[in-house]
């Protein structure tokens, strides 16, 4: 499956990354080469093979329902970007598609 400009632009939109035209151009070429190499996977017969999300022989890892104090608001907000804090809140521009 070759990758074209439109696909690169669409994926960048989904990933919320602004790309310059030059980047779109360059990535399209580079990713086509990578995807060509990746496409060879289609040759492998996996009809009877289950997928592995992990190699770990572990199941049912849980913790007790014990509340513990976390960070204070001050510590939580300390890393807010410039303009990203308003009192005890994080501040962002108006949320999309709201009313």
């Amino acid at each position: 499956m070759p990758i074209d400009r439109r696909t690169v632009v669409h994926a960048a939109d989904l990933a919320r990354i602004a790309l310059t035209d030059a980047e779109v151009e360059r990535f399209t070429g580079q990713l086509s080469v990578v995807l060509d190499a990746v496409a060879r996977l289609a040759e492998v017969d996996t009809s009877a093979i289950p997928p592995s999300a992990s190699t770990l022989p572990l199941r049912n890892v849980e913790r007790d329902d014990e509340p513990r104090p976390g960070l204070g608001a001050e510590e939580a907000l300390a890393n807010a970007p410039r303009g990203g804090r308003d009192g005890e809140f994080f501040r962002v521009q108006e949320v999309l598609q709201e009313r």
Binding site: N79, A80, P81, R82, G84, F90, Q93, E94, V95
Partner: peptide, 16 residues
């Protein structure tokens, strides 16, 4: 760019 790190503001949140 909401809670930490770099934020480059644009016209609206999506562009940011």
């Amino acid at each position: 760019g909401v809670r930490y790190g770099l934020r480059v503001e644009g016209r609206d949140l999506l562009e940011t």
